[in-house]
């Protein structure tokens, strides 16, 4: 960053002579120091996961959730300034609720991301505000079933105009990532925060675009990827938090929920095993394999 100190980086909404908005770039720096957050779009749902660095022994374990529920079917995880993340989530909740007010139905993930993108972008336009110090991953499930007639007050016509189409299916998983500039893309697998490079490399190996990875496998991969991404800051302890949203006939019935404790623990065990396995492979190449230890696991 050659132009630092030339004065074009002291105020938001100001372009430098080479066309950059430095304050937005600095906001990205705040994101890059945050705990790794990822999202995986599976064939029958979406997984969100985050690495929470334990900054103090006095923190209550298992609380201080970092993945927020926005509407029944949407979750958001973010990396960067935690209070900014809460502001972002609060806006998302307002958008989801106002959509329900207008359309009497759940907001599609694409529409929510679009609105949030616009909101974040507005914080790059004025010198009276600063950009968001977060990159947020929005994950959710757009219902594949038709909407109930005004919250199931009646059952609606059985056929004909306004009636039902047998077996018709729409909807599906949605995953978007919104950056401090307001830019957002849809993703098969998204990663942000400190360990994003390692996480992205792992995500790319999964062949997510083929749409074959199941949700339960996605949970296990997500746990493993967070563990892999943590390797670079190994000296710090961390807690893994994961949530998921499945299809209507899946385990969460289209809702955004915490991954159940037993599955989370299983995924963590598998993640640790996979990491140790890697280490052992390295050891093995040095001609130092340790068969008995492996069997004990």
């Amino acid at each position: 960053m050659t132009s630092i100190g030339t004065g074009y980086d002291l105020s938001n909404s100001v372009f430098s002579p080479d066309g950059r908005n430095f304050q937005v770039e600095y906001a990205v720096k705040a994101v890059e120091n945050g705990g790794t957050a990822i999202g995986i779009r599976c064939k029958d749902g979406v997984v969100l996961a985050v690495e929470k660095i334990i900054t103090s022994k006095l923190l209550k374990p298992g609380s201080n959730k970092r993945i927020a529920t926005v509407d029944r079917h949407v979750g958001i995880v973010s990396a960067g300034l935690v209070p900014d993340g809460r502001h972002f989530v609060s806006r998302a909740r307002d958008e989801a609720s106002s959509w329900r007010g207008v359309y009497k139905g759940p907001i599609p993930i694409s529409a929510l991301s679009n609105r949030l993108g616009s909101y974040v972008q507005a914080y790059t336009l004025y010198s009276s505000v600063r950009p968001f110090g977060v990159t947020a991953i929005v994950g959710g499930w757009d219902s594949e079933a038709e909407l109930a007639v005004d919250g199931q007050v009646g059952s609606g016509p059985k056929s004909g105009s306004g009636g039902k189409v047998e077996g018709a299916k729409t909807g599906g998983p949605g995953l978007y990532m919104i950056e401090p500039s307001g830019l957002y893309w849809g993703y098969y697998g998204a990663a942000t925060g400190k360990g994003r490079q390692a996480a992205k490399a792992e995500l790319e190996k999964l062949d997510l675009s083929s749409g074959t990875l199941s949700l339960v496998d996605g949970v296990k991969e997500a746990a493993r990827i967070i563990y892999v991404a943590h390797e670079d800051s190994k000296d710090k302890e961390f807690e893994l938090e994961m949530t998921w949203i499945s299809s209507l006939d899946g385990p969460t019935k289209g809702r955004h929920e915490e991954v159940p404790k037993d599955l989370l623990e299983e995924a963590e065990r598998a993640a640790k095993r996979a990491l140790e396995g890697e280490d052992e492979e390295e050891d093995a190449t040095k001609g130092n394999s340790n068969e008995t230890e492996r069997m004990e696991e």
């Binding site: 529920t69 909740r93 919250g151 929920e257």
Partner: peptide
């Protein structure tokens, strides 16, 4: 139906935290 929608929005809000 109006009250039902009020109840639904409260239910969603109540479930933000677990």
């Amino acid at each position: 139906q109006y009250i039902d929608r009020l109840l639904e929005s409260i239910d969603i809000r109540e479930n933000y935290s677990t």
